[in-house]
Amino acid sequence: PSVSLLNQETLQQRLQALIEGARENWTYAIFWQSSYDYSGTAVLGWGDGYYKGEEDKGKGKLKASSSTAAEQEHRKKVLRELNSLISGSTSPTDDAVDEEVTDTEWFFLVSMTQSFVNGGGLPGQAFFNSSPVWVAGSDRLATSICERARQGQVFGLQTMVCIPSANGVVELGSTELITQSSDLMNKVRVLFNFNN
């Protein structure tokens, strides 16, 4: 137990090291943790995530969202509520919360509510087959049988990758087109080999 606790604590650093140390521009990394529900079904649930965002082109602003005004209002409302929940404050003025919520930020936030059962979704597929899944290109994401991949494409992703590890799956997403890299897969194996 002490080992797994230690690993849980360093999960964030591992995700950060993976993204910040990569040559490619990854937008986010998520660790989907494997566990079993009350019925003994294997489930991949949120372990931790690191959101880097899109490449800042030097303008100091986040990439604008393609969402409608109504959708933005909805996102801001949810963010305000989550902010109150976390901070315990009901302060109506928080400029950061009221700023536009980009598509990838929203995708990352929504991911926190998701889980994958019995090999479902991109992470489930990678875990179930013990084999990485690398989907590069908007067209391939849009036509994937996995809803998560299609959802990623809708929110502006061009590349989604799921790499299985000892007790979960590392997922990376990018708004850029990134071709398969054995270097990244090796890094995941080293950083997320919790049994070693």
Partner: peptide
């Protein structure tokens, strides 16, 4: 509701803090 699992709560807190940092990031002036 307030029953947010601890892993998600920590991740969310970090996400909101980082977002605040990014948005209030000092301008070149």
């Amino acid at each position: 509701n307030g029953d947010l699992p601890i892993a998600r709560k920590k991740s969310l807190q970090r996400f909101l803090d980082k977002r605040r940092e990014r948005l209030t990031c000092a301008s070149p002036y």
